[in-house]
Design a protein around this nucleic acid. Sequence first.
DNA 1: GGCGAACCTTGACCGGGATCAACGCGGGAG
DNA 2: CTCCCGCGTTGATCCCGGTCAAGGTTCGCC
Lengths: 251, 251
Amino acid sequence: MNLRPDQILPEQLRSCRSCPAAKGGICEGLGEEELSELSRIAHHRTIPAGQIIFSENEKPEFFANILSGTVRLTKALADGRQQIVGILFPPDFLGRAHGATNACFAEAATEVELCCYPAEAFRNLMQRFPGLEHRLYEKTLDELDAARDWMVLLGRKTAREKVASFLLVLARRARKAGCAVHGGDEGVTFELPLRRIDIADYLGLTIETVSRQITRLRSEGLVTTVGSGCMHAPSLAALAAAAGQDEDDRA
Amino acid sequence: MNLRPDQILPEQLRSCRSCPAAKGGICEGLGEEELSELSRIAHHRTIPAGQIIFSENEKPEFFANILSGTVRLTKALADGRQQIVGILFPPDFLGRAHGATNACFAEAATEVELCCYPAEAFRNLMQRFPGLEHRLYEKTLDELDAARDWMVLLGRKTAREKVASFLLVLARRARKAGCAVHGGDEGVTFELPLRRIDIADYLGLTIETVSRQITRLRSEGLVTTVGSGCMHAPSLAALAAAAGQDEDDRA
DNA sequence: GGCGAACCTTGACCGGGATCAACGCGGGAG
DNA sequence: CTCCCGCGTTGATCCCGGTCAAGGTTCGCC
């Protein structure tokens, strides 16, 4: 925990009902009582980009909903080789709700806003409210699916497919967040919340290979660069084809 | 579902109390009422090696505890490339307890004995008994940890480290199952429940590379072959070193 | 504006693992 | 017993992505 005191804000001011993490987050669908008890133990924190949120093998001090920003979950080998094992966006839940220790490092890839629950109090609430644990279980199953999809990418895809798959994930996320229009395969503009080194660690590649493959996809017209840290994909179908998956495959 | 009628046995005869999946399985720690309701909907099945237990994107018909044998969970790309995303042993739970469809294929790597619960009835029980859902949630968190450890292997380890890591997992499992003695780093003999093609699909390699690396580890004295389908590791510490991880790392 | 640091891109070369091919081995069927 | 087929091993060669090295770009700070 490397949080400075001034990063710990007083009780959240916005009501949970207007919370950006309510839609799709663990709070969604909870009753009045659950929600009010949760909000009683919650507090908001802002964490600057690059900072470690919690470490592997550490006793968890808190769990959190992500309100804004991007969190990377990493694991490392003894000699320093690193692999990003998960990327979290709002309204994902951060932390291992059961078990004595954290399973990996959590780091702020961008500046991150969290809605934190002290570990002990949160676990008590989980025990009292099975509906809360149920929501968390469903989210964990989705994380497991995502991890296994990523295993296919890491084990069997080429560098070009890996990079295309990564961009496709971002593009689909942006389209889903942006609007409910699903009229066709119109283009999508999206942000790149990760630096090259993070993309490389996520895809099991080096930064040079990531850079070369992005250049290649750009030269093939599958993506265009829109300023720094922002890209545009004219066709998600074409990008999906380059990613080595069927168009309707959500992975 | 490719089960022949004769593979569906009548109600289980052995009591749940003497069940091989009780220790460490989802039934462990359940109350009398939960256990008796579970056993009422349970039936045993034996599935021959190589057979598909259920398919991806299929509506689940049943969930199951694995009583004996080895199950592989696989995902495939459109062009046939395959990745094993999980290996299940007794007393693991098989199936995605929530959600409309299965997330991957489940296949019997060896002959497998299952204790099956019809999906609908099982989900009803889960809703009534939060303790049951809690057990499943904990097991899913462990699966997620294992998947993420495997992501590090797939993304960042060399072929030699991958094969050593795989053998290490089997050796540790055998030692844990065999005896509670943890006196030191004495050797372990264990079975290989997977063929070369499965090992390759699990490690993101080809069968040729797996074969070569096993030969190499054998020539280095890290493992010896004990007949067909059986190996011996004289030192788990040495194997762990070759796997690129710290000795006390359980991954 | 000028400078420096962090990040990104590009080029040249190399090597680990894939690919292609041949052979060995063991077990079941005739 | 012989044949055949599935599985595993070994060898020769290739190529994708890693490695090493050299700029280029962006942006904050003085």
